[in-house]
Design a protein around this nucleic acid. Structure first.
Length: 829
DNA sequence: TGATCCCGCCAACGT
DNA sequence: ACGTTGGCGGGATCA
């Protein structure tokens, strides 16, 4: 980077613009017509502001904003109107008064308002940066800021230049879990403690000693280079996009989030965050300017996260005074699942999507079956290919004229509306959605809770990992790998997480040097369980048929999607009735994205290998298929049915693991293990299955993944006898070790109607199953308790002396650890 | 005044 | 060579 060339003038310029525009127009003079005009112009910043405020969660966003609103709004309005009088619409729009109105947070709200939190799979939820920037009236640069952090949460992913795919919050829980895990691996908790401690001891004194310590703690794990945590399925993009540059925002954002997830009072001060982030990069640079810059960036990130309502600003009062900090207000992430990690963790995912989760993962797997880094290597070309194909496709679609349109159709909601116009409605929608969303979530939680079986507060996440779908089968896989890999490995370079369908799998990009590490992990993990054959892997590579089918479905689905429903769109995902359709949509969408890849693969691997189905003993594909067939044949129906059935029938245990035959081979899996699914299924069904699995990307569809509820049920049934009730134990461990005897048939009969009931039942059962005498992991339970206990803020007294943590062991990190200074008075303004 | 953080230059990238 | 990304930090606003 160059040195300093300060373009100071700029600022002046911008201002001058304003001034120029409204030179004479004194706000004072301003005619009080505002109101009249306002209604007409939905776009007034003020209106937006209002909307936003109202939309914002009451608790969090609060009064300050309101106040602001009342105060500033008026002024702004006046100014605006004044301008309006003198300027044409465009010009008028351009002039934006208060700095606040230009805030990233507000912009982000607008941005978010355009897309549903849980996009139905309407195939293309594409985001064109240019369009967005234009519509939102901001320079593209700002959009990048938003998109980058959204990308860090996997809420969007880059498809191509200028193009992103919107995933909404479907991936959120998984992402958070992954991040949490990585954060734990990175020992962030300890780092935080250390920093605080140091601060406490002697305020700033950047010197050797301190640095040394820091270095030690930080340096202890080299992972510092860890860069981007990814979820399976989104890899390629990253691979291509992320060249080396993925440095800051994206990564920073993830790290920032990690800090929240690992710290016990989920409050992180900017200062600490900045230090940690800097520390990782370069231990010594205590350089003030660097620190400052970091803080600036953190504010940017924080603004976006705030808009997402994942955090909120608070102030921590300490000896030195109050420091700006942020508190995590996002979903609880299931407690660390140490080794078990991934797997079921997905449970956390509260809302609608929970069912989809499994599928997603699977999807991702399908796309990129298990690939560590190594796979990437060979992908570049693939990626390009994919991209080019996609681009072409897009062009074709959009070419006709309206890229916008496409997007509109894509996002059910707002997007349908033309830009500006959409804003207000969008926001409103957003708002509604938010509320409804919550309600939904609650519902979902309840229903899904089967998985979670969370006795305590609902808010507390579900610690017990429900066997979630595939989990069981995979767990073993996952677990084993972990076991195999020394923890050290993980701690150092959090790399990997096998894809557990259900679990949180994530991939971390490492620097080349570290790459090999990643490589270590491999599909084999997944395979391990195979011996039992309880894992069902479906590798859908093949494709032709599948793809076609899928595509068709997708199209149909799309057609189905009614723009008018836009408002409801967000909620839609939740709605059970719609589920099937949604799934379909999603599926199609996923397909779209994945198709290419698949094709490519098919080409590459052509044939035989391509579709390898790995039925597990428990898998009940036949049933599903059968039903599907029975049901009918319209693509849509089929799709829907299949998905449902799929969900319903597939045994939880049997996860569907997408992998290529080649992969399997690589793993040394006995050939016999690989059973082409088709054998069991009718062509139609076959197609459907793979498709489903693929679609998962953001979808809620359960596709290949067994439906949680059913899964649970199945699982439960299978294991109930085996598992005694008693102590509450993380499901994972237990499940993992449990023998799986399945009787899919029992469960198999299902109907949509059944779902609820089933869920309930399953929940119960599930809970029971969870309750297991055999406590796999030592203190898991206690831990949890502890955490909760301590979680309660407020008790400064409870704070143990720092010294305790000197070792830097987990113990400390457990959250029990309080730092002396912290009286933690969190104040919201 | 310190906390926030907008703005936009310009370099690294991608095509 | 040009368009896209996005690091970066000055300095304007806000509180």
């Amino acid at each position: 980077r160059s040195i300093l060339k300060t373009p100071l003038k700029q600022a002046a310029t911008s201002h001058s613009v304003l001034t120029e525009i409204q030179p004479e127009c004194q706000p004072l003079t301003t005619p009080p017509k505002p109101k009249e005009i306002l209604p007409a112009d939905p776009w007034t910043p003020t209106s937006n502001l209002k909307m936003l405020i109202s939309a914002a969660s009451p608790e969090i966003r609060s009064r300050e904003q309101r106040r602001e609103l009342s105060n500033n709004a008026g002024e702004l309005l006046q100014a605006k109107h004044c301008l309006q009088e003198h300027l044409s619409g465009d010009e008028y729009e351009k002039s934006q008064p208060s700095r606040k109105e230009k805030s990233l947070g507000l912009l982000c709200h607008k941005f978010l308002a355009r897309y549903p939190d849980y996009p139905s799979t309407a195939e293309n939820n594409y985001i064109c940066l240019d369009e967005v920037a234009e519509e939102l009236n901001v320079e593209r640069r700002r959009i990048y800021d938003i998109v980058n952090v959204l990308e860090s949460l996997h809420m969007v992913s880059r498809l191509a230049k200028n193009r992103y795919a919107w995933h909404g919050r479907h991936n959120l829980s998984k992402t958070l879990q992954a991040l949490k895990k990585v954060g734990e691996d990175n020992k962030y908790t300890q780092q935080i403690q250390m920093i605080k401690k140091r601060e406490y001891e002697h305020e700033f004194d950047f010197d050797g000693e301190r640095n040394e310590e820091m270095a030690r703690s930080f340096g202890s794990n080299e992972h510092s280079e860890m860069s981007f945590v990814e979820l399976p399925g989104m890899e390629f993009r990253a691979a291509s996009v992320n060249s080396r540059k993925d440095k800051s925002l994206r990564v920073m954002s993830q790290k920032f989030v990690m800090l929240f997830l690992v710290s016990t009072p989920q409050i992180v001060s900017l200062e600490v965050a900045a230090k940690i982030l800097i520390g990782e990069d370069q231990l010594e640079d205590l350089d003030k300017s660097k620190f400052k810059t970091k803080i600036r960036r953190l504010y940017d990130i924080a603004n976006v996260l705030s808009s997402l309502e994942l955090i909120k600003k608070v102030h921590v009062t300490e000896e030195r005074g109050r420091k700006p900090a942020f508190k995590w207000t996002g979903p609880e992430v299931s407690p660390n699942i140490q080794d078990t990690k991934l797997e079921i963790t997905s449970t956390t995912c509260p809302p609608p999507i929970s069912e989809s989760i499994p599928s997603k993962e699977q999807c991702s797997k399908n796309l990129f079956p298990s690939r560590g880094k190594q796979n990437f290597t060979r992908h570049p070309s693939l990626i390009k290919l994919v991209k080019s194909i996609e681009n072409d496709r897009r062009k074709i679609q959009s070419a006709p004229t309206s890229p916008v349109k496409i997007s509109a159709s894509t996002d059910q909601n707002l997007s349908a509306f033309p830009s500006k116009m959409a804003q207000d409605p969008a926001i409103a929608t957003h708002q509604l959605e938010g509320q409804s969303k919550k309600a939904k979530e609650m519902k979902m939680k309840l229903s899904r809770s089967a998985l979670e079986c969370n006795l305590s507060s609902p808010e507390v996440v579900l610690k017990p990992e429900p066997p979630r779908t595939v989990a069981p089968s995979q767990q073993p896989a996952v677990t084993q790998p972990l076991g195999v890999c020394p923890p050290s490995h993980s701690s150092v370079s959090p790399v990997i997480l096998p894809h557990t369908h259900s679990g949180v799998s994530y991939a971390i990009y490492l620097h080349p040097s570290q790459a090999h590490t990643v490589t270590t992990y491999s599909p084999s993990f997944m395979l391990q369980p195979l011996p039992r054959a309880n894992v069902t892997g479906i590798k859908s590579i093949n494709s032709k048929v599948v793809n076609k089918l899928t595509t068709e479905e997708g199209d149909n689905q799309i057609a189905t999607d009614d723009p008018t429903k836009s408002l409801t769109a967000k909620e839609r995902p939740t709605a059970k009735s719609e589920t099937s359709s949604q799934r379909c949509l999603k599926r199609s969408q996923a397909l779209e994205e994945n198709n290419i890849i698949k094709r490519y693969r098919s080409d590459e691997e052509s044939l035989n290998t391509s579709l390898t189905f790995f039925p597990s003993g428990y898998l009940i594909p036949l049933t599903q298929c059968t039903h599907g067939n029975k049901a009918g044949f319209s693509d849509e129906e089929k799709a829907g049915i299949c998905s449902l059935q799929h969900t319903t029938y597939s045994s939880p245990i049997a996860g569907v693991i997408p992998m290529t035959a080649s992969e399997l081979k690589a793993v040394n899996i006995p050939a016999f293990h690989i059973t082409p699914l088709n054998i069991m299924l009718s062509p139609t069904s076959i197609a459907a299955a793979p498709v489903l699995s693929n679609s998962c990307l953001n979808s809620s569809n359960t596709s290949s993944a067994p439906n949680p509820s059913s899964s649970v049920l199945n699982f439960t049934l299978q294991h109930v006898g085996l598992i005694p009730a008693g102590v509450q134990v993380p499901a994972n461990p237990v499940l993992q070790h449990m023998p799986v005897s399945s009787q899919p048939e029992n469960v198999s009969r299902s109907s949509e109607n059944m779902n609820l009931q089933e869920e309930k039942v399953s929940k119960k059962i599930y809970c029971n199953s969870l309750t297991v005498p055999c406590v796999p992991k030592e203190a898991q339970v206690p831990q949890t308790v502890t955490e909760n206990f301590f979680r309660t803020p407020g008790g400064p007294n409870t704070v143990p002396p720092l010294s305790a943590n000197s070792d830097g062991t987990n113990t400390i990190s457990q959250g029990t650890l309080y730092i002396p200074q912290r009286k933690l008075e969190v104040s919201e303004d």
